[in-house]
Design a protein around this nucleic acid. Structure first.
Length: 425
RNA sequence: GGAGAGGUGGCCGAGUGGUCGAAGGCGCAAGACUGGAAAUCUUGUGUGCUCCUUGUGGGCACCGAGGGUUCGAAUCCCUCCCUCUCCGCCA
């Protein structure tokens, strides 16, 4: 969430941020009204409490001195009733205030393009060479069928649509890719690996901004009030929830492999074939906790770290700088990495690298002690490094051969224990 | 799942109804002492909210969380969460 002081002191800046997201600015005024009301109530209640404390103290003194204190007792009793009534009002106002605050998105960075949706994104650079074929390249579904590495019908039988099964070399390639990425992040890029819970509580989901907005997009275990994570960002960022970090320890760089669970409510019927959009997928994620002044430099480094995954595999991809209307709720700036899928002639998003500034840190209460000993919120960033299904699609489609085999990128061969996927039919 | 013990500041730990935001110790910081350091001594050392006459200012809240009793709760009662020990079950 945003700093209420910022909304109070520079409301136009926040309204402009909402307009740049093509959102209504009314929530800003709602927050300001609730804030003013809350502060007025707190001032009134505090005055009553101060009075009660004062009288209450005198009661103790009188009783000790053997004097009668019944008048004072009656006075504090009346004050207590007034305070209780005031406190109810405060509680209600604060709950409404907090709810309203949680629904205001981050303010887009001023330097990113203004645009309503993905049409406004800026094409920053293309990396690698566009693969060419002297035959008609297949899409990953056709390739997968030839290679026998997916089983969709039995995934439906076990769970439902959107829960594909990887088989044999497909499962092994997936595992090899995870290992390759984690090794890159930990050995070459200085990240610490973490294997977190895949199920978290409500406070964690609020901390990173999934709740309340994305409630319907997540799987919920009612009995325990637990949530299946939609991304490793949630457990890894919340690792430091309510913590105070030492400035000397920053930046902290963590990486984690986890499955990700997404209901994709509202996407029914979209991208239903293959593994492009599924309810459960694997991803390697990178998360950083940094000093505010460095967060935009750290974002550039994060993008580079994600890019290294793809360049290391020799894949062709592009980098987009998302416009104001396309960045996520919590982000101030975001780059997407998109892999080229020649079979379906489409760019596939495999990574989002975002700077959340202090937006998540405020929600999750992640602070650090500055060199001067003051407390301040850290800036958090995260980036996929990278999502597996679409990486798999791109490898299949970019590296396919005329005979239907797939010649694997060299970097992955030692992990896979072989150099190609062979057709079984 | 059952029984018991416990949750107090950065850490340890005292506090069983009133001047307790909380003794004492450790740690940390500054100063004194020293050629320098150690030791010693002195002083300081939580967070959040809020008000105004923005000040070495005032007020409120916080002793796991929430509720209750009371004029008044760290202290008494209830519920929940967590930790530890033992038992049961189990990968």
């Amino acid at each position: 969430m945003l700093d209420i002081k910022r909304i109070r002191e520079r409301p136009d800046e926040v309204r402009e941020g909402l307009r740049r997201r093509w959102m209504d600015t009314a929530p800003v005024d709602e927050v300001l009204a609730l804030d003013a009301r809350r502060r007025a109530l707190v001032t009134e209640a505090d005055a009553l409490k101060a009075k009660r404390n004062e009288v209450s103290k005198s009661i103790g003194a009188r009783i000790k001195a053997g004097e009668d204190a019944s008048a004072a007792k009656e006075e504090t009793r009346a004050l207590g009733d007034a305070i209780a009534a005031k406190d109810v009002e405060i509680r209600e106002t604060e709950a409404a205030f907090r709810e309203a605050m949680l629904r205001i998105p981050n303010v887009p960075n001023k330097d990113i393009a203004t645009g309503p949706d993905s049409s406004g994104n800026r094409d920053v650079r293309h990396v690698g060479t566009l693969p060419t074929f002297d035959f008609k390249p297949l899409d990953h579904i056709a390739l997968g069928e030839k290679l026998g590495i997916f089983d969709f019908p039995r995934g439906v039988k076990l769970t439902g649509t959107g829960f594909p099964i990887l088989l044999g070399p497909g499962a092994k390639l997936q595992r090899a890719l995870i290992q390759y990425m984690l090794d890159l992040h930990t050995r070459r890029q200085g990240y610490t690996e973490m294997l977190p819970p895949f199920v978290v509580n409500t406070a964690s989901m609020i901390g990173t901004g999934q709740l309340p907005k994305m409630r319907d997009d997540m799987y919920h275990c009612e009995v325990d009030d637990f949530w299946l994570i939609p991304t490793a960002e949630v457990p890894v960022t919340n690792y430091y929830r309510d913590d105070i970090l030492d400035a000397k320890a920053l930046p902290i760089k963590l990486t984690a492999y986890t499955p990700c669970f997404r209901r994709e409510a509202g996407s029914a019927g979209k991208d239903t074939r293959g593994i492009l959009r599924v309810h459960q997928f694997d991803k390697v994620e990178m998360v950083k906790f940094v000093e505010p002044a460095t967060s935009y430099d750290e974002l550039e480094k994060l993008v580079k770290d994600a890019e290294d995954v793809l360049t290391g595999l020799g894949l062709h991809f592009r980098v987009l700088e998302l416009c104001s209307g396309d960045i996520s709720f919590s982000a101030a700036k975001c780059y997407d990495l998109e892999l080229w899928a020649p079979g379906q002639k489409a760019w596939l998003e495999v990574s989002s690298c975002s700077n959340f500034e202090s937006f998540q840190a405020r929600r999750a209460n992640i602070r650090y002690r500055t060199a001067e000993g003051k407390l301040d919120f850290v800036h958090t960033l995260n980036g996929s490094g990278v999502a597996l299904p679409r990486l798999m699609i791109a490898i299949l489609e970019q590296c396919q051969q005329a005979d239907g085999s797939v010649l694997l990128p060299e970097a992955i061969r030692p992990y896979f224990g072989g150099d190609r996927l062979l057709p079984v039919r």
